[in-house]
Amino acid sequence: MMEHVPISHVLIVTSAMFFIGAYGFLTRRNLVTMLIGVELMLNAVNINFVIFDRYLFPNQIEGHFFALFIIAIAAAEAAVAIAIFINLYRNIRSINVEEVDKMKY
């Protein structure tokens, strides 16, 4: 039952997810893993929206809708990102960030 789980616990989980995702995005060296980091951040936001609807505003469904739209957009973003990764791989035979350094001043 949801009464047994206070909202603070859920918020700790989502905040942790968000910042783990951010940490992963900033430290990982593989482009696909970086994308996974971003997805983790977006999913943290999704849980946030759903949880706020459930606990704080039980009469509203705006949060649920927002989460659905975020899922769809994240899929579109991942599709474009992976298409570009493939294009990069064809060009330089690698998807390591360290090798994506043609432009430096």
Binding site: F25, L31, L35, V80, I84, L88, I92, V100
Partner: peptide, 11 residues
């Protein structure tokens, strides 16, 4: 270079 720009922008 173009692919790099795309990656940096999308990420």
């Amino acid at each position: 270079k173009s692919a790099e720009a795309g990656i940096k922008l999308i990420l």
